[in-house]
């Protein structure tokens, strides 16, 4: 048991509480009725996806500044978790859009920039798989991550900058007081779960990266060898 396992467990308990309150105790939304309950799943996922990808950015800065593989592993751990959360938020959003807006998808600025965000960070992960030399991989991944991160503030602030179909930010002022608590609990739950998963992944990835980087003078070879072994 490590501390992140405890954080993960707390996160799941909170998620069950937050979602349980959102589904069964909070009132339905006045006009969206039951569809309004998607709020407690979609909004926390979106917030935490952006937080996780912001952590990728800081890890990338740390990796380039220090050259430490600890930051390099953190970039991969947060980027892969953030990618999955971004894919999840796009799915949740489209399941909410159909009953409320009338369509699963529309190319409005918020939706379009979110889809671009997913593509950009999938690109980061692909680049990372392609470059096998640990040292070059650290540099290339970090640069790609900083470039991809540009879209995070665009997704977040886009609803303020441009007209969109997507609503603006929700806040306790725009959300009924009975709906704030489940939303807040679910948001912390998703944050804890995401952070815990990132830390667990970070330890695994770091061990692998360090093992690769330790091989003297033959940095590219181990990865290719093990790949070949797997395919045989």
């Amino acid at each position: 048991m490590r501390w992140e396992h405890g954080l993960l467990a707390i996160g799941f308990v909170l998620l069950a509480i937050g979602h349980g309150m959102g589904l069964f105790m909070a009132p339905e939304e006045a006009m969206m009725r039951e569809a309004g309950r998607i709020l407690y799943a979609h909004v926390p996922t979106a917030w935490v996806a952006l937080v996780t990808l912001t952590l990728s950015f800081f890890a990338a800065v740390g990796a380039l500044w220090t050259g430490r593989y600890g930051w390099d592993a953190a970039v991969e751990a947060t980027a892969e978790t953030g990618v999955v959360l971004t894919a999840l938020l796009l799915f949740q959003g489209s399941m909410w859009a159909k009953p409320t807006w009338g369509y699963y998808w529309d190319w409005d600025p918020r939706l379009t920039t979110s889809a671009i965000l997913l593509v950009l960070f999938v690109g980061v992960l692909v680049v990372r798989r392609v470059v096998s030399d640990p040292e070059r991989r650290l540099t290339v991944t970090a640069i790609a991550t900083i470039v991809a991160f540009v879209d995070v503030p665009v997704v977040y602030f886009g609803v303020k900058w441009w007209r969109s179909l997507h609503q603006e930010w929700s806040s306790p002022q725009t959300v009924d007081s009975t709906m704030v608590m489940p939303l807040r609990i679910a948001a912390f739950a998703m944050l804890f779960i995401s952070l815990a998963i990132c830390v667990i992944r970070w330890r695994t990835i770091l061990a692998t990266v360090q093992a690769e980087a330790t091989a003297p003078d033959l940095p590219a070879l181990p990865a290719e060898l093990s790949l070949a072994e797997k395919e045989v």
């Binding site: 396992h5 993960l8 799941f12 998620l15 979602h19 589904l23 006009m31 969206m32 009725r33 039951e34 569809a35 309950r37 998607i38 799943a41 979609h42 996922t45 978790t81 999955v84 959360l85 999840l88 799915f91 949740q92 399941m95 909410w96 159909k98 009953p99 409320t100 998703m190 779960i193 815990a196 998963i197 667990i200 992944r201 695994t204």
Partner: peptide, 28 residues
């Protein structure tokens, strides 16, 4: 008002749990 949207709600919550549990199990 939106009527009969429980199906969408269930799909969203199911997907959310499948994804976070899946991520956690894979990581562990």
């Amino acid at each position: 008002m939106v009527d009969g949207a429980w199906g969408y709600v269930i799909v969203v919550y199911a997907a959310t749990w499948v994804v976070v549990v899946g991520l956690a199990v894979r990581a562990l």
